Computed example of a mutant assay.
Amino acid sequence: MQHGGSIYIMTNSARTTLYVGVTSDLRNRVIQHKEHFYKGSFTDQYNCTICIYYEHFGRIEEAIAREKEIKKWRREKKDKLIALMNPAWEDLWKEIETW
């Protein structure tokens, strides 16, 4: 059985730190970040609670490959990717929470 997946980018309120992640359940994963579910994790330490970008894939393997690709990029390239989907870098939680 194949399951889809998503990649996403979280940031802090100052938009100075980026975290790129992959998940099979974007809604619940963003909730975990917002609630600091994993104490001591990177996103907990840097207060990355704002989802500013995501992409969906039909297979989790595709999402994992895309996450690895984006993680290798310089900050400037990540910034451009985010700006294409979300020019104001707003929290996309309102889109995600209704899934």
Rank of each mutant, 00 (worst) to 15 (best):
E55D: 05
T49Y: 10
E67D: 04
A83D: 09
E97T: 01
H3T: 14
N47W: 05
Q32N: 15
Q45H: 08
A88S: 11
I60M: 09
V30G: 07
E69M: 09
K71W: 00
N86S: 00
E76I: 05
N28Y: 08
K77S: 06
F57H: 11
I31Y: 14
I52Y: 08
I60D: 01
V22Y: 00
V30N: 08
T11N: 06
K94H: 13
A14V: 10
I9H: 12
E35M: 12
K94M: 08
F37R: 14
L92V: 03
H33Y: 14
R29Q: 12
C51S: 09
A14R: 12
R74D: 14
Q2P: 13
L18E: 04
D44W: 04
R15L: 02
N47H: 15
T23N: 08
E61L: 06
G4E: 05
F57T: 04
T16E: 15
Q2S: 11
G40M: 01
W99F: 13
K72E: 09
I60V: 09
T23Y: 04
D25T: 11
T23W: 05
V20F: 01
Q45M: 07
A65I: 03
W73A: 10
H56W: 02
N12V: 00
T43K: 07
K72T: 08
T16Y: 00
A65F: 01
K34D: 06
R74H: 12
Q32E: 15
R66Q: 10
F37Q: 10
K68S: 01
E95W: 04
D91K: 06
Y8A: 06
Y53D: 09
A88Y: 12
V30F: 07
K77N: 06
T43P: 05
K80A: 13
C51I: 15
F57A: 04
S13V: 09
L26Q: 10
G5N: 06
A88V: 08
K72M: 06
M10R: 11
P87D: 01
T16R: 09
I70D: 00
W89E: 11
E69L: 08
C48A: 07
Y46T: 13
K94E: 15
Q45T: 10
R75Q: 08
G40A: 03
Y53A: 09
F42W: 07
A63W: 02
E61F: 02
D44L: 02
D25M: 03
Y53E: 05
E55P: 05
K94L: 07
S6I: 05
W99Y: 14
K80D: 11
T98L: 05
A65M: 05
F57L: 02
Y8M: 02
P87N: 01
E55R: 09
K94D: 12
M1S: 15
Y53L: 04
H33Q: 07
